[in-house]
Amino acid sequence: MKNLAWIVVVAGVLVVSPVSAQKWQPTRPVTLVVPAATGGGADQMARFIQGIVTKHNLMSRPLVVVNKAGGAGAEGFLDLKASRGDPHKLIITLSNLFTTPLATGTPFNWKDLTPVSMLALDQFVLWVNAASPYQTAGAYLNAVKAGNDRAFSMGGTGSKQEDQIITAALERLTGGKKFTYVPFAGGGAVAVQLVGAHVNSTVNNPIEAVAQWKAGNLRPLCVFDSKRSTYTAKVTTTMAWSDIPTCKEAGVNLEYQMLRGIFMSPGATPDQVAFYVDLLSKVVQTPDWKEFMAQGAFNQTGMTGPAFRKWLEGAEKLHVDLMKEAGFLAK
């Protein structure tokens, strides 16, 4: 019997080994879940990735984008969490990866998913209307400090999400004076509300506000990053993204970026993760992607594996701290 078992094992190895030497490949269409509505930043990026994968023929099976935006993205994350062991399901994240479970108490944590790679970090910029008198972040915050409580309004996307978290963090620097935070449905609408002077300032992502900046309707005060942007091509006649001072330079010590990353369903094997890491690295190398990054002035930091995990742990802690301080945690 022992011999027979050996033969079976050997035969098995002989049969299996050529297969396992070949890398894992998707056998069905791959779904890319967007935990946000159609037309938003995450959705655009997801569809852009889908376009690149199709155009450059990077995968043998089609990539399908599905929006699951319910409950500030909780719907999408819970869907992935429930798809344990399904290697044909990916999700693109925004900050709601951290904020949604913290603010709504939805039973979900990023550790429930398998991190694949960080594609980029989305910047946040403090904007005011071009007609407003404030030329620097310092001047603006001083005005807030000197004004009445809640006299200045900040428009943002959603509630208890990244924009409001940044606003709450800014309030640490205004001597106890609060902003009136007004949540809108999408980043584009926020930018237009600022152009129409219905709010005093916003913390829009570059891509949400760039068109209005270019047209001379908005003025960027500072970028919430430790370093200035690396994009030096002129956006307006006088300024490039790299000309916007960091908030630290402007005396506002605050840093916040939004993760644009890809995760897959829980229980994925290293082989499967490796396939998607490889796929996404091909996507990121295309000229189309580079152009897209430049348009939105993304911080092109990419990470995978343990480094990515470590970054995620840090980011989660940052969100817990900021949200606890702002009183945004679900009771």
Binding site: A37, T38, G39, D43, Q44, R47, F48, G51, G186, G188, A189, A191, V192, V195, I207, V210, A211, Q212, K214, A215, N217, E291, F292, Q295
Partner: peptide, 27 residues
């Protein structure tokens, strides 16, 4: 303005960006 007046317009807006065009006052 770069603001969609309908859900379909929102998707078209995403399309403009993907094709390398920037919707907005300067388009």
């Amino acid at each position: 303005l770069g603001i969609p007046g309908s859900p379909t317009a929102a998707v078209l807006l995403g399309g403009l960006l993907i094709w390398g065009l920037q919707p907005g006052p300067l388009l």
